[in-house]
Design a protein around this nucleic acid. Structure first.
Lengths: 228, 228
DNA sequence: ACCTGAACACCGTTCAAGT
DNA sequence: ACCTGAACACCGTTCAAGT
């Protein structure tokens, strides 16, 4: 990218785990998981592929480190407010992080119970407790929220990636239009529901839809509380 | 695997797309997505790797076909019952299919709106309509259910895969024990919630937990209905 | 202690050549 | 029309050898 560097072309800094992880995140953001290659990485860092293995055990560890770096930077911020508002804040933070770094989605899906994810799970769980959910139902409630948040954010990222691949200029509106039109063309007998909501789907806003889902689960949590 | 085949070692059948897909599913079930290789596949089918390309465009199409084959076989069955019961049946069908074929999870996460997924989405949506959800909320409700179902089933499959990798004999109980003990060792100040529910986590049943989440969302859907 | 870069054992995919 | 199998352009990872 930055081709402007003129004279002294010697390595400006020693290789370090941090520089490697930063470069990895850059590659991942530009070209997705398949764009992160030890050869591309070493080219960008002006080393041989073997050098990276001195600082990082393998590609899996590198992906974990990249995930940690991006996610811990994106989720610091301790919003105040009601329990529901705080849960929405965590949810939106994750949604936006995955939207900006779509490679996070499979990474988070494949290994839950990693430290950053656990912190977020705990934050959600604390607010579930603050909502007055009795102890036996807390795990179910916090899990359902977490699963929905990660799943919806991941689907959103996948849709964006598919839009970039399938449509000429990566237009989200065009993808919605195509999909919605396809639903309208389905026979009403076989797909009555899709037929009905095709128009709704065409005009929906991903972020708003995501938050509506969070609120739906929050309503369920509240509804199942003993006090009703 | 089957080394017992004696005489006539000529190819018993011509190659066909169906035979290729069946063999692909077999490889995927045994060794996961990384086990599906055009070389392994052609070895099992006693051909060259190039032959497969006559019937299948590329690996992505092969994975799609394998997903279709497994999922359409696993989700036929038109249970009767209340809308909630029917939704639970679809949910359990998907949960079990992904549990038995863990490679389905990333496949379904990466391309929603594929024909089989659309059928299931429509089935869920029909029951949402049967529950009396007003039109504007139908898409949110069905989406939330679908996202939760796919997400929870995927996490369950990922956990099972990790248990197989990390623990000596792939013991799920051992993984739960290890994880739960780790949560109890976390400091109470930083992770109050995890600390509290560690014991619950140790004893939870994945399938029951999954259904409890479905019911939680159903409760939310019901709670947000106009009639209350 | 840290880096180099050739080498190994794999991939998906293509394509001339065969039947 | 369908299959063969060598070849191409990649991978992640290792490791003797250098500094």
């Amino acid at each position: 990218m930055a081709t402007g560097a003129r004279h002294t072309d010697r390595r400006e800094d020693a290789l370090s785990r941090e520089r490697i992880v930063d470069a990895a995140v850059e590659l991942l953001d530009i070209a997705g998981e398949s764009g992160l290659t030890f050869r591309a990485l070493s080219a960008q860092l002006k080393t041989g592929p073997g050098a990276i293995y001195w600082h990082v055990a393998n590609k899996s560890e590198l992906l974990d480190a990249a995930t940690d770096a991006v996610l811990s930077a994106a989720t610091t911020g301790d919003h105040a407010g009601s329990p529901a508002e705080r849960i929405r804040a965590v949810a939106l933070g994750l949604f936006d992080a995955i939207d900006q770094h779509p490679w996070l989605a499979p990474q988070l899906a494949n290994n839950p119970w990693k430290s950053v994810t656990l912190q977020l799970f705990d934050r959600v769980g604390q607010q579930v407790q603050a909502l007055g959910v009795p102890s036996p139902a807390q795990f179910t409630s916090a899990s359902a929220l977490m699963i929905y948040i990660l799943g919806a954010a991941g689907q959103n990222a996948a849709n964006a990636a598919n839009a970039r691949t399938q449509q000429p200029d990566g237009d989200r509106a065009a993808l919605l239009e195509t999909e919605s039109a396809a639903w309208e063309r389905l026979d009403r007998a076989g797909y009555p529901f899709l037929h009905d909501i095709a128009a709704q789907f065409r005009e929906h806003d991903d972020r708003a839809q995501f938050l509506a889902g969070v609120d739906l689960i929050l309503a369920g949590i509240t509804a199942l509380r003993p006090q009703g």
